[in-house]
């Protein structure tokens, strides 16, 4: 993605990881319902780096050259593993990932490459299109 403008309205590529929310066991115990208050690990939900000013100030995708549109809680993205076949629909339920921690990180599949972490998925969503034991997955995403 680099310095290109990216609104994620038309399909684009990104890297994704997974996060737990809505309580749970182990280190997830302290994770609440996320920025939107309704996040659950068992639902098809996601975290987006630009849900609010406060969120944007933490994730700073602009530092990686990613110009992301503001989307609020409940907005639906359609996500497909670049190495897979299925597409799933996920709704925004939290703020994340820390895009600026991983600027320039890139993974590819069959000639399609994804750069920068622009989305995090709940375990239910991530495991529907990939394996939880792999921490990073290249995806295509559109609204």
């Amino acid at each position: 993605m680099g310095n290109e403008t990216n609104s994620v309205q038309s399909a684009t590529t990104a890297e994704t990881s997974w996060f737990c929310c809505g309580g749970g066991w182990g280190p997830c115990g302290s994770a609440g319902g996320g920025a939107c208050g309704n996040c659950q690990s068992g639902s098809y939900m996601c975290a987006w780096p630009n849900t609010s000013d406060a969120c944007f100030n933490i994730t700073r995708p602009d530092q990686c050259g990613d110009n992301l549109l503001r989307w609020g809680c409940g907005h639906t993205f359609y996500v497909r593993n670049l190495c897979g076949a299925n597409e799933i629909a996920v709704r925004i339920a939290d703020c994340g990932p820390h895009t600026n921690y991983w600027c320039g990180e890139r993974s590819c599949c069959s000639g399609n490459c994804a750069t920068d972490r622009l989305l995090d998925l709940t375990p239910a969503a991530y495991s529907a299109i990939g394996n939880l034991s792999s921490g990073i997955m290249p995806i295509s995403v559109h609204s």
Binding site: C20, G24, W25, Q40, S41, G42, S43, Y44, M45, G84, A85, N86, I88, V90, R91, P123, A124, S127, A128
Partner: peptide, 25 residues
């Protein structure tokens, strides 16, 4: 081709909960 063998998609409930997924202890 990958599209030829796409796995069936799960039906989610109104809260987006996937019945084919579980978490817990």
């Amino acid at each position: 081709a990958p599209e030829a063998v796409a796995a069936p998609m799960p039906k989610l409930d109104k809260n987006g909960i996937d019945p084919n997924f579980a978490e817990g202890r």
